[in-house]
Amino acid sequence: MIRTAHVNGIDLSFREEGDPAAPALVLLHGRTADHNHWNLFTRRFAARFHVIAPDLRGHGASARPAHYALPDMAEDIVALLGALGVEQAVLIGHSLGGVVAYHLAMNHPERVSLLVLEDPPAPVPHARPPLQDDTPMMVETERQIVDPDPAWAEGLKRVTAPTLVLAGGPSSHVIAEPLADLIPGAKLVTIPVGHLIHGDAPEEFWAAVQEFLE
């Protein structure tokens, strides 16, 4: 079911599947994608979880406001959980969605039971080619990815949820591996297929996540 909630001052579209009485699991897509990013897995997860798959601000059917601060994008999800009466959830985020997930987990550790980060950029300086897309969402998020606030790396020490970091290996353009050192007790698993692990190695992704969730 596709629904819309007015949260944190914006309209956020989201897909909801599974039993609302089951433990909540939030799927956060990568940059330029939307909730359909997770179509291979939404119903699989819904067999045991209340699945919430939002379109992040600036994506899909959600609002496109003027600002895209990464901590604000995390607050959108906190507000969505509040609107749905969800006190705590499993978070699974790919790429930009992983960044949003770790900001939520470090700023609201009590809201996250388990954290899965699929090849998100760690909050360390990145050297990347210039963007070819000058939309506000792309420009503002890229600026924060390549030159992150140094406080963010320190803030990851506040994450209390058991955390799985999935890295795409040498063929990924993203530096995710430092997250495993920055987040207390995090487990690092490398699936060397590049950045889109759940798309290019879906069964390996599923097996790693299921082992962690168990």
Rank of each mutant, 00 (worst) to 15 (best):
Q210S: 15
S62Q: 06
L213P: 05
R143V: 01
L96Q: 08
L156W: 07
E214Y: 09
N39Y: 15
A63Q: 13
A153Q: 07
H6C: 13
S13M: 10
D11A: 13
Q88K: 15
A105Q: 02
D19P: 11
L27Y: 09
L131H: 07
I145Q: 03
N107T: 15
E75M: 11
L117S: 03
L117I: 05
S62I: 02
A66P: 09
D181K: 15
A79L: 04
F41G: 10
S171W: 13
A22Q: 11
F14G: 00
V7Q: 10
R48H: 15
S113M: 07
L164R: 07
V165W: 09
L27T: 09
A33D: 09
E214R: 13
H35M: 04
M138L: 04
T135K: 04
Q132T: 15
A186C: 05
P123S: 02
M1T: 13
P178T: 04
H126N: 07
R15I: 03
L80G: 02
A89W: 03
F41M: 11
S172R: 08
G98S: 09
L56A: 12
H103G: 04
G194A: 11
P148V: 01
M138V: 12
V139P: 01
V26D: 05
G97V: 09
H35C: 06
Y102D: 05
L96W: 01
T141D: 00
R143N: 04
G169F: 10
S95W: 00
H59T: 00
A201F: 06
R31M: 13
D76L: 03
I52K: 01
P192M: 11
H67M: 12
H50Y: 13
A180L: 04
P192F: 08
I10F: 09
H103Y: 11
L91Y: 01
G82S: 12
L117T: 00
W38S: 05
S113I: 03
L28F: 01
R143H: 02
E142D: 14
E118K: 02
V100M: 03
G169V: 10
L28K: 00
D134A: 13
A208H: 08
I191R: 04
L96I: 03
H35E: 09
E118D: 11
V124L: 12
S113F: 03
L182Y: 04
R48S: 15
M106H: 12
L115P: 02
Y68H: 02
V100N: 01
N107H: 15
N39S: 15
V189S: 06
Y68E: 01
A180G: 07
W206H: 10
A53N: 05
Y102C: 11
M106V: 02
E142R: 14
A167L: 10
F212E: 08
R111F: 09
N8K: 06
M106F: 09
E177N: 10
I197H: 10
I92S: 00
I92E: 01
A127N: 12
L213F: 03
D72C: 02
V146R: 04
V139K: 05
M137A: 12
I197A: 05
V146I: 14
I52A: 05
N39P: 07
Q210T: 14
P125H: 08
P170M: 13
P129L: 06
H50M: 02
D149K: 01
N36K: 14
S95V: 03
A63G: 15
T32A: 14
L156V: 06
A161I: 07
E110Y: 09
L213W: 04
F45V: 05
A79V: 06
F41Q: 12
P120D: 03
E140F: 06
I197C: 11
I197M: 10
L40H: 14
R44P: 11
A83F: 08
